[in-house]
Design a binder for these strands. Structure first.
Lengths: 112, 112
DNA sequence: AACGACTACCTAGGATCACTATATAGTTAA
DNA sequence: TTAACTATATAGTGATCCTAGGTAGTCGTT
């Protein structure tokens, strides 16, 4: 992740984050890391050791498909990941779970 | 946790939840579980196997203190947990981390 | 006094998952 | 050919929540 933040916050949410980013179109590994940084002003800064196993896990689960393609700038080929329909459904569910969880946390304080 | 929710959402947030509940006053183990249920309409439903190790961890870290007291209704004695000053500071920090993380997640969509 | 029901605390072992660290390999420029 | 950069990959580690039990005290009923 990032600087001095609790890395456990990410647990269970990395999948949501990756699916969210890929919702707008196919992307390859390092590009996803860059996108996450850009969209959150550097807050999310995944390491490759977090990203690739997660992408493989999601692909294994049928939420993503992948395809190698040559780089337009030279350099090694890139593996592009695309959201499947099943992935889209899973994203909706995860988004919903997150909302519920998030509001439950907010309810804790102030309640009673 | 609960029904069919991703248990990983809780990772890294259980401490925040426990400290939040204990912020309003000392409480014993099973009472904390009940409070969490009540305040979130049953959404949070910790198991004892999650709760007690977490309480011990937080006590070990100096964020809580504990004291046995007799039950007013008979039954086994209860171990009451109280937030320390260090625990209060930690709670503030965790609360802040959560806010940042939560808003980063929200930024992901819609951005770009 | 013996039993069951209830309350309360505790822990070992397993599974998941992100991170650290390292490996491999292709391209480009010096 | 060396270095720098890009890109994908994975073994090993550590944190942490859950499953599945266990221990023990009190109370009411028989």
């Amino acid at each position: 992740m990032n600087q001095n933040l609790d890395p456990n916050l990410l647990k269970g949410n990395l999948d949501l984050i990756l699916l969210t980013i890929l919702e707008e179109g196919e992307m390859y590994g390092l590009e996803i890391i860059q996108e996450a940084q850009i969209r959150t002003n550097g807050y999310f800064d995944f390491k490759e050791g977090s990203l690739y196993p997660a992408l493989h896990r999601l692909t294994q689960a049928g939420l993503l498909t992948s395809e190698f393609r040559e780089s337009d700038l030279g350099g090694p080929r890139r593996k592009y990941y695309t959201l499947t329909e099943k992935g889209q459904h899973s994203l909706s569910k995860k988004r919903n779970d997150w909302k519920q969880f998030s509001s439950a946390i907010d309810q804790l304080k102030g309640a009673k």
